[in-house]
Amino acid sequence: MKNDEFKISIKNGEIVIAILLMIIGVFFLITANNTIPENNIAGQPGIGPRAFPVLACWGLIITSAVLIISRLVKSKYSGKVKIFEKEGMKRVILAVVGLIVYYFVTPHTGFIISSIVYLLFIYWVSGYPNKKLLVLLAVLVNLIVYFVFQVLLNVPLP
């Protein structure tokens, strides 16, 4: 394995995702049982508001469990791996963290400024060499978005 990459077998990745989904299913099942009324109002017949979410939770828990068992017994992907390049993963993580920061900052700075900064940041993360072009594009793209949404569509941007 090269230093600049790490590998996860598809089987293990599937099992980890399925375990997380089971946990989510159990969490929502407990929440449903504690917070959603079981029956309809005024003795209306049929199933109440809790039944459908509970069905979805049980469905998620059971299918995830079956997936885990099936992968432990036999996986059609056994031996196959997903390769994550560290540089590529860094770009993805930076983009997501940047998006979260952008989400929290925008209500304070306004849409235009934070969007230009965020777009410049993502262009930088992507590694395109022509910096002048990127600045021009970041400003232009956001002005177009502002014009189309705020002026044309009357969408009040934050």
């Binding site: 262009y123 992507s126 990127l134």
Partner: peptide, 12 residues
């Protein structure tokens, strides 16, 4: 490197 970052703003 130009195309996909630009798309993010549109998704937002």
């Amino acid at each position: 490197a130009i195309l996909f970052p630009t798309v993010i703003i549109f998704t937002v």
